[in-house]
């Protein structure tokens, strides 16, 4: 119960009291261990031992470090030289030769839009031909976030094990992050809507112009992080908490997996899937590419934002 009282006091007094507490805790010199009493029978032996010991500690360590550095530099230079020598066999930079032997790229460029209905061939490739690959990518992001959550999540319980870590991260948060900064807030008023609208634009135009789920999602996440920086956790908690994250991400991933599975199943069995490719160049063209890139974008935006909050204070 004492820990709990401490926490309340620290939170009420601000970080200064916590600082002095931590200073008292860590500032105490550690108890020195008595050196091993090492009995050497002969004084000459003892002197040799002493010489060897000092040499290892002063010169030997430095010598080993220097040898390691030299070896590392040599190995890196050798690897670089080997790789650069290999580039001599490659076609010249900017040459069309690699594309001429490449039937796959030729197929993607010439036939891609007829199969996918997307003006942007790269989006057609990553969301249609290589759709399962992109699904795996989204899951890689999701799993990475789960790992970071396991490593950094600090529940605000009065568990004495995580108490100190939580208090330290809270103190860091108070010390290093801006609080109600006027310039930042006024800038955010102008910038956040623009950034969010631009993110949505990139997200929705991924099959027509440069962009797509990953880039649009990153811009959306950056907008959310800017809002959080300017206005703090109290404001963002109202519309984005852990439950929102869980619901959004799992439903987006589930939607992606189900629709992709449906498309591949019907395509493999020669059944018409009932989703046309739409008129070329319109916002609703490209069949399922638009909803798929929105799903990917939601996953990416949420993941970026939650990663930031986890690194900042271990909680949402």
């Amino acid at each position: 119960m004492k820990m709990n009282d401490d926490r309340i006091r620290w939170l009420a007094d601000g970080s200064e009291s916590l600082d002095s507490e931590m200073l008292r805790e860590y500032g105490q010199p550690e108890a020195e261990e008595a050196p091993d009493a090492f009995e050497m029978p002969h004084p000459r032996e003892r002197r040799y031992y002493h010489l060897l010991h000092t040499w290892t500690h002063r010169r030997g360590e430095r010598l080993m470090n220097r040898m390691y550095s030299v070896a590392v530099v040599l190995i890196c230079v050798a690897i670089c030289a080997l790789l650069i020598a290999t580039t001599a066999d490659m076609p010249r930079f900017g040459d069309a030769a690699p594309l001429e032997d490449d039937n796959l790229s030729e197929f993607y460029v010439e036939e891609g839009y007829r199969h996918t209905g997307a003006a942007n061939i790269v989006t057609g490739i990553i969301l249609d031909f290589r759709g399962f690959d992109t699904l795996g990518e989204s899951h890689v992001l999701f799993i990475a976030l789960c790992t970071v959550l396991m490593l950094l999540y600090l529940p605000k319980k009065s568990d004495p094990k995580t108490m100190r870590e939580w208090l330290e991260s809270e103190a860091d948060d108070r010390r290093f992050e801006p609080h109600a900064d006027l310039i930042l807030q006024q800038g955010a008023v102008l910038l956040v809507p623009l950034v969010l609208v631009f993110g949505v634009y990139i997200l929705l135009n991924g099959h027509l112009s440069p962009g797509g789920g990953f880039s649009g999602g990153t811009v959306l996440g950056a907008g959310l992080i800017l809002y959080l920086l300017a206005y703090g956790f109290r404001k963002t908690e109202r519309f984005f908490n852990f439950r929102t994250y869980r619901r959004l991400t799992t439903s987006a991933l589930l939607f992606y997996a189900l629709s992709k599975g449906y498309i591949f199943f019907t395509g493999a069995n020669g059944i018409s899937n009932g989703v046309g490719t739409g008129r070329f160049g319109a916002i609703l063209s490209g069949g399922l590419l638009l909803p798929l890139s929105v799903a990917v974008g939601l996953v990416v935006a949420c993941t970026m934002y939650v990663l930031y909050t986890l690194f900042r204070k271990g909680d949402l």
Partner: peptide
Amino acid sequence: PSVTQYVNPL
């Protein structure tokens, strides 16, 4: 669309 107009998308 001709493959000779565009860079390699892969």
